[in-house]
């Protein structure tokens, strides 16, 4: 579903991502871990079509992000680490806006908004302006907005930050359910326990370079993901 082929992205002299290649298949939850400034967000933004890359190619469902960005964006959703949403819209207004952009039918959006807003306990708040939402509520709204067009690929940057335990649990359940139905999820996290329990595969990145990748069992072996991560990045 997502194929990252040898991408490099530099900011001036510094290479934020250096020759990175990954392959995320349909049905996989793929964790992406690394220290602060390792290049996780840059990679996710490049996949989402926000940042161009200096070298390499990214394919979503076999389509090049560089050559056909709009076709790729139709198939995916991106949730940033700090979702700044339109504060001048209401929650339902924002979800409708996103659904219009993604050309979701009235019936589908109605059903999905109801389902996910109920799941995340946000239904009662949908009539209120986003400016009145807490960080966690904005995060929930961003997740619902990402799911409203039933994407084939979801890119999430630190999706658990700011969520209460119940919402975090709902996110994990939703992620698993989506992937069981054929969606692929590529997400970055610093919560290694979550990654260990949730991910089918994991990649560890350091200074923009991939240092370890594979199934959870392949990467961590008999130890914990935390031990492996610390031994690799130190």
């Amino acid at each position: 579903m997502l194929r990252i082929e040898n991408i490099t992205k530099a900011y001036g002299e510094k290479k934020a991502v250096d020759g990175l290649s990954l392959h995320i298949r349909a049905g996989e939850i793929y964790g992406f871990i690394g220290h602060n400034g390792a290049g996780k967000t840059t990679t996710l933004k490049a996949c989402a079509g926000i940042l161009g890359v200096d070298e390499g190619e990214i394919f979503v469902d076999g389509i090049s992000v560089r050559e056909q960005p709009i076709e790729c964006k139709k198939r995916m959703a991106y949730i940033p680490d700090n979702p700044d949403l339109y504060s001048f819209m209401t929650g339902i207004g924002y979800l409708n806006f996103v659904a219009d952009i993604y050309k979701v039918t009235a019936e589908d959006r109605q059903a999905r908004i109801k389902k996910y807003a109920d799941d995340f306990g946000l239904t009662a708040e949908l009539a209120n302006p986003v400016s009145a939402y807490s960080h966690g509520m904005k995060q929930k709204l961003a997740i619902i907005a990402a799911l409203v067009h039933a994407p084939k690929l979801i890119l999430m940057d630190e999706p658990f930050v700011g969520l209460d335990p119940k919402a975090a649990h709902t996110v994990k359940e939703t992620m698993r359910a989506l992937c069981d139905s054929g969606c692929a999820i590529f997400f970055s996290t610093h919560v290694l326990e979550v990654a260990e329990k949730l991910c089918d595969k994991v990649a560890i990145i350091k200074d923009g370079k991939l240092i370890k990748e594979g199934t959870m069992a392949e990467v961590k072996g008999d130890t914990s993901l935390e031990d492996i991560f610390l031994s690799l990045v130190e």
Binding site: G93, D100, R109, L126
Partner: peptide, 25 residues
């Protein structure tokens, strides 16, 4: 605080939605 009451949602074009966003802002 207003409690949300589910209503029938209408679909709009991307252009109209973007235009509406500019108006609201």
């Amino acid at each position: 605080k207003r409690a949300y009451k589910e209503r029938k949602i209408k679909r709009g074009s991307a252009f109209f939605s973007l235009f509406k966003k500019e108006v609201l802002r």
